[in-house]
Design a protein around this nucleic acid. Structure first.
Lengths: 146, 146
DNA sequence: TTGCATCCGGTACCTGGGTACAGGCTTACC
DNA sequence: GGTAAGCCTGTACCCAGGTACCGGATGCAA
């Protein structure tokens, strides 16, 4: 009997386009189930692990943090029926966050365009003038801090 | 003779809405000039330091990193005439970056909306289906990773 | 001169998402 | 059974932009 079509960590990492240490990192973070081991202690992953990794990377690209991804994966598996669980709710929340980020960045872009249009060429000089469009005075953090 | 209208570090920090340790941090980073000292070693800032701090915070909100802000401030002061110096060039570059981030985030928002419209409610299940709009397959990092 | 607020330098820690390295073990193939 | 590739654990480090804490020194007013 062979290992039953299961994959070594290097194979999983290569198949998912991920560093091998990242696998163990995700395991520590609770994103990847602890796989079986060979008698010598080497990990043996089921083929689904590659899918899970793709899912993780996709969710990350959609703006979810690793903690959020862990919750999403857990929510999918054992369906505790607390409110606010479920991909739809979380996707909706995340969409709102993303839209807020876009709005903030658009404000930043507009300000940069104004500065370009006004021909500002030195921050400290501009800060001393009145017609400079740069918002030096409002220190409330209403913008994005990327 | 008093200290000549100059400010203690706590006063500067309060006036600029900034933590006091941040002042020393900026000094180390080269964003804030080293101020004079009292005979005992306490910093004495000129009033312009508050303006400089506002400028720093503004530039940060516009998407510049602290290193970039340091260069912008230095470029303003002693005008070395290398190319790509000057606020206008840098603002233009930064505007392009910000626009790219907006585009990436808009793609993310669109994908989230598609997932909501399709009614996906479990990532691992969706990944196994064909009509799921989530881009599980393309692992090339074309999106934003906020 | 005493008392208290403020400030000093140095160092360590935080978040988030990993990556790198060292030293030793396992597996696989010939 | 030898040898090379692969894997193991643990620890440390990276990025940026700060924040927190400590013991000790200063500044200022009564």
């Amino acid at each position: 009997m062979t290992t039953g079509g299961r994959l070594r960590s290097g194979q999983v990492a290569a198949a998912a386009g991920v560093n091998q240490q990242t696998l163990r990192y995700y395991e520590r973070r609770g994103l990847l189930n602890e796989p079986d081991r060979t008698p010598g202690g080497h990990r043996l992953y089921p083929a689904e692990a590659v899918t899970t990794l793709r899912v993780i990377k996709t969710a990350q690209r959609l703006g979810f943090t690793l903690d959020e991804v862990a919750e999403l994966l857990e929510a999918g598996t054992h369906r505790h029926r607390r409110p606010d669980t479920g991909l739809r709710d979380r996707a909706h929340t995340k969409l709102t966050e993303v839209e807020a980020r876009i709005t903030g960045l658009q404000a930043i872009a507009a300000t940069l365009r104004q500065a370009l249009a006004a021909g500002c060429d030195d921050l400290l000089t501009c800060a001393a003038e009145q017609d400079c469009p740069l918002p030096f005075t409002d220190l409330a953090n209403t913008g994005e801090a990327p």
